[in-house]
């Protein structure tokens, strides 16, 4: 039997037409609604730009003058914005450094445990742990806000039942646990509760991709459960781990809603002011879009550098 191959040129031309006709609208959409705003965002970092002031062409110039790198210099200056920016970086970094390991410590063992139970229960557990992910972040934050309420919150009610004194969990600027402000820890716990289902499901998928033969071989060799986890599961999950670490780091640098709802303007005493909250305030409360775009650009650079470092450190040269 012979297979008739179409003429090369005509096939390629039709392929090109198909590709062009399907991709062009999406590309145009992406250009107008993603690329152009991004470039606009970069451009306004070089202007003292506020929509409350009348500018020239496209809003630039006039009362929104070109100022070179002044906005970038402001981030390192002693101005109110510079100080708040550095506080925000410190708080966000603290949050990221606590959240990432905490998330991994909770989700990975939990995923292994869930993977070990029978199939029906596995589905039940997976659903329960994933539920917070599909719940509105605002709703989650409001509910946890009530739990933390100092007067009628569930947490303090339980403490009082045990004869302990309740705490103003989200508004106490004085109490620190291992140097971490209490409100920051409270938000961290809430965020972990609401976000851990995502990584859990990814880890479960990763675990299901590990061939059973490796575990069986380890059992034959006399490895116990911990040794199998430490020397089989974790190394073979490296691709999944890389993905989870990078994505978790990305999302936790950009955390916003939960802080916005639970602690308002980064209170108490700016102890929970994170970077995206700062961007929001500078842009829409203080009406300095150029400055806000500069902070957003700094956030972009921070995320890019940390992601590249992570990818480099977690690089592997083998597959299974």
């Amino acid at each position: 039997m012979t297979v008739e191959t179409p003429k090369r040129g005509s096939l390629f031309r039709s392929q090109h037409i198909f590709v062009a006709s399907t991709l062009t609208p999406i590309m145009l959409y992406m250009m107008f609604f993603t690329l152009v705003p991004m470039l606009w965002g970069v451009a306004i970092t070089f202007f003292r730009y506020s929509p409350t002031r009348v500018g020239g062409f496209l809003g630039f110039g006039g009362a929104n003058p070109f100022i070179g790198v002044d906005n970038y210099a402001d981030l390192f200056s002693n101005s109110p914005n510079g100080q708040l920016f550095r506080i925000s970086v410190k708080n966000t970094l603290m949050f990221v450094l606590m959240y990432l390991p905490l998330n991994l410590i909770v989700t990975l063992p939990l995923a292994v445990l869930i993977e070990a139970v029978n199939k029906r229960l596995k589905v039940v557990f997976r659903t329960i742990y994933f539920l917070p992910i599909v719940t509105s972040a605002v709703a989650v934050s409001l509910v946890w806000g009530v739990i933390y309420n100092p007067t009628f919150g569930l947490l303090n009610m339980v403490l009082r039942d045990f004869g302990l004194k309740g705490l103003p969990w989200l508004t106490d600027a004085t109490t620190r646990v291992f140097g971490i402000p209490l409100p920051m820890l409270c938000v961290l716990v809430t965020y972990l509760w609401s976000d851990m289902g995502y990584n859990l499901v990814i880890f479960i998928a990763g675990l299901q991709g590990i061939p059973e033969v490796y575990h069986e071989a380890a059992i034959v060799d006399g490895a116990n459960a911990w040794q199998r986890f430490r020397y089989i599961t974790v190394p073979l999950l490296r691709s999944t781990l890389t993905f989870v670490i990078v994505m978790t780091m990305l999302s936790s640098w950009q955390v916003f809603v939960i802080f916005f709802v639970m602690t308002g303007r980064g209170g108490p005493s700016n102890l929970t002011r994170v970077l995206v909250l700062h961007v929001y305030e500078v842009a829409f409360r203080f009406q300095e879009m150029g400055l806000a775009a500069t902070v957003a650009m700094a956030l972009f650079l921070i995320i890019m550098v940390t992601t590249l470092i992570q990818l480099r450190l977690l690089r592997k040269d083998w597959e299974y």
Binding site: T151, L170, T171, T263, G264
Partner: peptide
């Protein structure tokens, strides 16, 4: 001021909760 402030038990709600 730790339990009654702008971020917790705000007066516009806590008054109407009898607090």
């Amino acid at each position: 001021p730790l339990t009654f402030n702008g971020d917790s038990n705000w007066v516009g709600t806590s008054f109407f909760q009898g607090l």
